[in-house]
Design a protein around this nucleic acid. Structure first.
Length: 588
DNA sequence: GCCGTTTTCGGCCCGACTGTTTTCAGTCG
């Protein structure tokens, strides 16, 4: 049975949790968590790394953890995990995960009151038994009950990126309008453009932090939010929707330091500060202090902070401690793809299937964005629910698109007659070859029969990648963030097939999808597969969501050259499989 | 448990806030 990176990472993570409950020194626990993260992010299967004895090539994975993965691979179990799981009930880890509760508190609840699950904790708190315990009060009891109640509600703990961006923009507008506010910006995972955001981190510069923090808290209360912390430089509100927003404030002179500090990630900052500490520098949100002299460097400008530490400015999307610090030190940072580099969109729908705008409206919106081409790729019938088009309808639709295209070609715009053809359960495509051969652009995607086995799903995607008329695989993993997981697929096999047959892979900009995720996108690029960034737009306004796909590509270290639709249609078309039609003949 | 431009042993980022306390531990990011 295949050993998946995500599963191995989860087990190593759990082992870390249990060691923490067991009272291990924090650095040991930290080591397990770091290793788990490296394994989850590895761009090669750890099973292969284990077989070839290369596990310790991964940073933060040493001989001990490599041996544990080896044990897992050869025996299917982990003796140390079994031992600890026998010692601590599984529910105790859930108790440890409650906000405000950590390993120490969870362990004390277990040792002193025999509490081994969230449910038992709730019962004990309700019957007033928690306040009897040393160092725990009635107030704590109430907070625990509130935390349990919040956790029991089926609300999203992670917010999708587009929603986080909008929410932050609203709050920032309020903050910037405040007289005590000199500057305010987004920070944290939001600024790094992670696909989901756990809580919103905002930062501000002010000479009167108390006034600004009070205004922020007031803003929260007006919106029915709880103010869960409010100090001299920081406040936290938790909205009725469960979204937590942190605001940190420093004097304007240290705003660049704060921006650096609070953009993170934690791993990036820890690595940066470790290197700095070895050079006698202490880095915090208040400045860079030379410990020996006591001299403190502050700047309003984030780039100056990086420069003081010996680095080029690092794009926030790269700040995950995946080699960006070394690259910034040595001047090897890539020039990442930008929204302005994109010249067209090759996955969009119209009213012919489930889109909300006509072909003409979609084409006009693409031209307004300054694009040189747009592919109309309506669904084939296999998508179901009467949405898609059969072979005859597709031919008719293509003829209709080409009528529009003829006029636009005179103005140098390529409107492509395409399709998003379903990859059916039996691994065939939903339209005959002769129909596909006659279309300018073919996206092939899986929509139905998502519950098939890994072997079946992989076989479908590999067959589509091999197909001579398929240009690109659309949303390759089929995930819908917060709603459903990716289908079970051996993406490495799909990537290998794409590399061999010259099929492209799509980064889908829809904030619900955003597949490929960065590790997979990087895996594809390393295998020599070219990527496209498409919106899969169903209306004119969603063409702008390209920014989220670009952010996702940037997180994979992608340059403009790595992304096919930074090229003109003529250039791009020449890079397709042999025999694919050239599309409309442009004039001028 | 991991790691090495001081090191194969002895370090391991840094600060804010809360709660129950009179100086700090626990949690969080």
């Amino acid at each position: 049975m295949a050993l998946r990176n995500a599963d191995v990472a989860e087990l190593i993570e759990r082992l870390g949790d249990l060691y923490e409950l067991d009272g291990a020194v924090v650095y040991r626990v930290l080591a397990y968590r770091r290793a788990a993260r490296r394994i989850a992010e590895a761009t090669e299967p750890v099973e292969r790394l284990s077989v070839e004895g290369r596990l310790t090539d991964l940073p933060d994975v040493g001989a001990t953890i490599a041996a544990k993965v080896e044990e897992l691979r050869t025996t299917g179990t982990l003796a140390s995990l079994e031992r600890l799981q026998a010692k601590y009930p599984p529910g105790l880890v859930d108790v440890m995960r409650l906000p405000g509760v950590g390993a120490k508190t969870a362990r004390r609840l277990f040792d002193l009151a025999g509490i081994s699950s969230v449910e038992e904790l709730r019962e004990a708190a309700e019957s007033g038994r928690i306040r009897e315990l040393p160092r725990l009060s009635e107030r704590t009891e109430q907070k625990l009950l509130a935390a349990i109640a919040a956790g029991a509600e089926p609300r999203e703990r992670e917010v999708l990126l587009d929603r986080a961006v909008e929410r932050a923009a609203g709050l920032l507008a309020h903050l910037r309008a405040h007289p005590a506010c000199v500057a305010a910006d987004e920070a944290g995972s939001l600024r790094r453009r992670r696909e989901t955001v756990g809580d919103l981190d905002l930062i501000a510069a002010s000479d009167e932090p108390a006034a600004l923090l009070a205004a922020f808290a007031e803003l929260g209360r007006a919106d029915d939010a709880d103010v869960t912390a409010q100090g001299d430089s920081k406040a936290t509100i938790v909205g009725h929707d469960g979204i937590q927003v942190d605001l940190r404030v420093v004097p304007p002179a240290a705003y660049g330091n704060l921006l650096q500090h609070f953009t993170g990630s934690k791993e990036h900052n820890v690595a940066l500060r470790e290197v700095a500490a070895a050079r006698g520098l202490r880095v915090s949100e208040w400045g860079v202090e030379e410990v020996e002299s006591g001299e403190v460097f502050r700047s309003e400008d984030e780039a100056a902070v990086y420069e003081r530490l010996g680095y080029a400015w690092i794009p926030p999307e790269l700040r995950e401690n995946r080699g960006e610090l070394e690259a910034a030190r040595d001047g090897r940072l890539p020039r990442l793809v930008e929204v302005a580099d994109l010249r067209g969109d090759l996955h969009a729908h119209s009213t012919a299937s489930d889109g909300k705008a006509t072909v003409a409206q979609m084409a006009a919106a693409a031209r307004e964005r300054g694009y040189g081409y747009l592919a109309i790729t309506d669904h084939s019938a296999g998508v179901g629910m009467g949405i898609g088009l059969d072979a005859g309808q597709i031919r008719e639709h293509a003829a209709n698109i080409r009528e529009h295209a003829a006029g636009l070609a005179d103005e140098g715009f390529a409107l492509l007659a395409g399709v998003e053809v379903d990859i059916l359960a039996d691994a065939t495509l939903d339209l005959p070859d002769d129909v596909l051969a006659g279309l300018d652009w073919v996206v092939a995607s899986v929509h139905g029969a998502r519950g098939q086995t890994r072997e079946q799903i992989t076989a479908r995607l590999v067959a589509a990648a091999r197909h001579p008329h398929v240009d690109v695989i659309g949303h390759p993993t089929g995930r819908m963030l917060g709603r459903r997981d990716a289908y079970d697929v051996d993406l490495e096999a799909v990537i290998a097939a794409c590399a061999e047959h010259g099929t492209f892979l799509e980064i889908n900009s829809n904030p619900n999808r955003l597949d490929l995720k960065p590790t997979h996108a990087r895996m594809a690029l390393d295998a020599g597969v070219r990527l496209l960034i498409n919106t899969d737009a169903h209306r004119t306004t969603t063409l702008r969501l390209i920014e989220y796909g670009v952010a996702q590509a940037r997180r994979a270290w992608a340059t403009a050259d790595d992304i096919l639709n930074t090229r003109t249609w003529a250039e791009l078309s020449g890079l397709r499989k042999p025999g694919r039609p050239p599309g409309p003949r442009l004039v001028g």
